[in-house]
Amino acid sequence: MKKGNVVFQIVFVKLLIVVSLLLGVHTTFAKEIKNDTSPKVLNPGSLYLQIKDPQDRLFFNALARPDGKDMVYHIKGKAYAYVPGDIYKSKLNHGAALFGIEGYNIRKAVQIEGTNDVIVLTREIVFYTDLKTGEILEKWTNPITGKTYPVSHIENDHVNFHYRVEDGKLKTVINNGNREIGAFPIAAPESLGDLLVYHADAFPLYNLNERYNINDSMNLKNETYTSAEFFDFLVSDKYVNQMKGNQIPKGSVPFTNSWTRVSPWTPWMGLDENEYAGNLTFHARSEVLDGFDDLPEWIKEEVKENYPLYTSSLDSIDSSPNATSWTSFYESVLKPINKTWKEWLKLYP
């Protein structure tokens, strides 16, 4: 990893890395477990009780349930076109809503046996939806080129994160490959009235070839994904007192979240960053649910029928880099047909 990327990760932690969870902070923070891709894991409850600061304990509940069961972040919002200079005029106006998004991240925390390390194991699936009907989009017509492409939804298996309980504090662990950079304390939340706000301002940066061995730039400049993401996690301050004592909480704490992301056009939109200036701007809200069964019926039915893997979180630790929309598109669309992104475009003249 380049020095600049290491500096970015440290700065990001100091700003408070909350979850990657939610769609899309694509930087990998999960530790690569040396010589064992699936170490034995335990319920995280005993480690949770070692955390002394109630606000740190509350943050743990933003990450996952201390009882080790699945927890869900249900997310819903829209994606808009960000067009510098409004250069596409009537074809695609700056600020035009393009499609809705709705889905979830499902997660649980585990302790690595023999350590004070906690891994948050997550999968996430998010559907692009029709703005008028709310139904899942199967295809989408690009207003700039007039071409129609099949929609590839967000299927990220996995997105994992690494934490440690040390001297009674919950810390975020950052690694450079197999070398640990350090474990950093969680920053205190801000108080707004009777709310506590944990926040993170992130600027993900990764090279497809260097991190994922994908020798295809797809629609990205310099084979490199660059974006900006802004998270606010809100919870009533009354829950701080509930974090005290020697009891492991049952169920989830009702965190809510606001998320904004500015990113490249998704690969299935058929727009090359080198040719078509602009970005997607996502703005969405999410809420914590106890588990998969609490999701809207249409999501549960769709996932059970077509994406059963996402009915639960992972059962073991996968030390490979976290999945992203681009790696998912490569694995599910390009790799099976042995095509590059530019060759795939030619299938839809």
Rank of each mutant, 00 (worst) to 15 (best):
G251C: 02
I317A: 05
V240I: 12
N207V: 10
Y206R: 07
D157M: 01
F230C: 12
D294H: 08
Y310V: 03
D293P: 01
R179N: 13
H199V: 10
L42C: 14
T37S: 15
F230N: 14
D315N: 14
K3A: 14
N215L: 10
K171W: 08
I174H: 06
T122I: 08
S263Q: 15
K221S: 13
F59S: 12
D237C: 07
A187Q: 14
I119L: 08
F127H: 02
N207T: 09
L309D: 08
T122V: 09
H153M: 00
V19N: 12
A97T: 00
P336K: 04
Q247A: 15
T311K: 02
V165D: 05
F329V: 07
S38F: 13
G182T: 12
S38D: 13
K147T: 05
I125S: 00
N246Y: 05
P267N: 04
E343N: 05
W344S: 04
V333S: 03
D130F: 01
A188Y: 08
I75N: 01
D67S: 10
P267G: 03
F231C: 07
N176Y: 11
T141S: 02
F60L: 10
R211I: 15
A183Y: 09
D130Q: 03
S312D: 13
V333H: 03
E102M: 04
N175F: 15
S38W: 09
T129A: 05
K346S: 10
N241D: 14
A183Q: 09
K300E: 11
H94G: 08
N116T: 12
K78C: 04
I154C: 00
G291I: 06
F255R: 02
R179P: 02
I154V: 09
S252V: 00
Q111N: 11
A277D: 07
R123S: 03
L47A: 10
F329I: 04
E113T: 07
K238L: 03
F230M: 13
N175L: 12
T145R: 04
F127N: 05
P204Y: 07
D315P: 03
P308T: 04
E273P: 02
K31N: 10
F203W: 14
I299G: 06
F161N: 14
K52L: 14
L63Y: 10
D272A: 04
L345V: 01
T266H: 12
D237W: 02
F184G: 12
K250G: 07
T340E: 06
P44H: 09
L271R: 01
T266Y: 13
Y212F: 13
N257R: 13
R261H: 07
L23W: 02
Q50T: 15
A187I: 08
K304A: 06
K78P: 06
D36F: 10
S152H: 08
E287I: 11
W298S: 13
V165S: 09
S316D: 08
I33G: 09
K339A: 13
D56T: 08
F8G: 15
V41P: 01
K76G: 00
N338I: 05
V19C: 14
S320E: 15
I181L: 15
I106A: 03
H162D: 12
F233Q: 01
Y239K: 06
K3R: 13
W298A: 11
G114I: 04
V83D: 01
N222Y: 05
L170D: 06
V303G: 01
Y149N: 00
M218Y: 06
I10D: 11
W344H: 01
I75Q: 01
D117H: 12
N222F: 06
L21V: 15
V120G: 07
V72C: 07
N35Q: 10
D237T: 09
